[in-house]
């Protein structure tokens, strides 16, 4: 049996761990708030890009025939972008993505398609390599604070692979952010880009967007015939439309980052709670040992006295 001293040592080390986990919890909470703000900040930008695209499309009369809008005739190779974190210690955040990504891959293979994997986050990259499913490209080093150019890098790579015919469809698998406690693994199609998504609001995911649309339509209604374009609306659309892919990926990166912080916060909170519980039990144990030792000593004293 462990001695009283051993138990005291264990209590000490558990307390240290608790200090670390509660500090990590606090850091995650602060970062979570920042990540939430960044999701909010993206909204007006995404909405405006969308309304601008619609205005330009109306002026051009039609959406130009861009390769990223055209579905390939046959889908033989599916690209899957698995998006999670660079670091662990975030509960099931990373494993959920790996699990559903691997399941999705298997499904596609069962249906006779090839799968090309892309990874965002060091954890995903290493897990995939461990399973002998080496991703065709891994993007790492920015998942806790993604920036717009990261999204562009990913989008450019995916678009290039799609246009070159290396993949015929691209989906992302990521944790979408609902609340600090809930993240939902989401699979979203990003290529080919659906025309409907451009014309009917694919970037804004809910009702607030409507009021913005109305505002914009008012502006449009008053001034439409006078719009001046530099360059021609068709040229503008050629750059605006790929932006949809970039923004979709950027939003996914931001949501994934917020989810990671939420998951980390929750994981660290349960670790801290666990440590408190353990400290309580160990203290009880230590007191019991102390009492046992005292009883033992009294018995020895009494026994010795009787012997005299």
């Amino acid at each position: 049996m462990a001695s009283q001293k051993d138990t005291a040592n264990r209590i000490g080390s558990v307390k240290n761990i608790q200090k670390i986990t509660s500090a990590m919890q606090m850091v995650a909470a602060a970062r979570l708030r920042r990540a939430e703000q960044r999701i909010q900040a993206l909204r007006p930008y995404a909405d405006t890009i969308e309304t601008m695209t619609r205005t330009a499309a109306a002026a051009a009369g039609s959406i130009p025939d861009l390769p990223i809008l055209n579905p390939h005739e046959e889908v033989n190779n599916v690209g899957l972008l698995l998006m999670a974190g660079d670091r662990g210690l975030a509960g099931s955040f990373n494993t959920q993505i790996i699990r559903s990504g691997v399941a999705a891959r298997q499904e596609e293979i069962d249906e006779g398609r090839d799968v090309t994997l892309f990874a965002v986050g060091r954890r995903i990259d290493s897990s995939l390599n461990f399973r002998d499913m080496e991703p065709s490209r891994a993007f790492t080093g920015f998942t806790d604070r993604p920036e717009y150019h990261n999204a562009r890098e990913i989008a450019t790579e995916l678009i290039a692979q799609y246009i070159d015919g290396k993949v015929d469809q691209v989906d992302i698998v990521y944790n979408s952010y609902l609340s600090p406690l809930t993240q939902v693994v989401t699979r979203q199609r990003i290529l080919p880009l659906a025309e409907a998504q451009i014309l009917h609001g694919g970037l804004s995911d809910d009702d607030d967007a409507e009021s913005l649309d109305e505002q914009h339509e008012m502006v449009e209604g008053e001034t439409e015939p006078l719009w001046d374009y530099e360059p021609a609306p068709e040229e503008l659309l050629k750059r605006l439309i790929p932006d949809f892919v970039e923004i979709t990926i950027y939003r996914a990166l931001l949501e994934s980052a917020a989810s990671e912080m939420g998951a980390k916060m929750t994981a660290m909170r349960s670790a801290s709670d666990n440590a408190s519980e353990m400290i309580k039990n160990l203290t009880l144990e230590m007191n019991r040992q102390r009492q046992a030792a005292i009883t033992q000593e009294i018995l020895e004293v009494v026994g010795g006295a009787e012997g005299l």
């Binding site: 001034t223 530099e230 360059p231």
Partner: peptide, 19 residues
């Protein structure tokens, strides 16, 4: 600066969309 060159916009400029 737009793709076509430098640009300055003042009040009452006509509606414009530029890259």
């Amino acid at each position: 600066r737009t793709v076509d060159g430098s640009l300055g916009i003042k009040a009452n400029h006509e509606p414009l969309m530029a890259m």
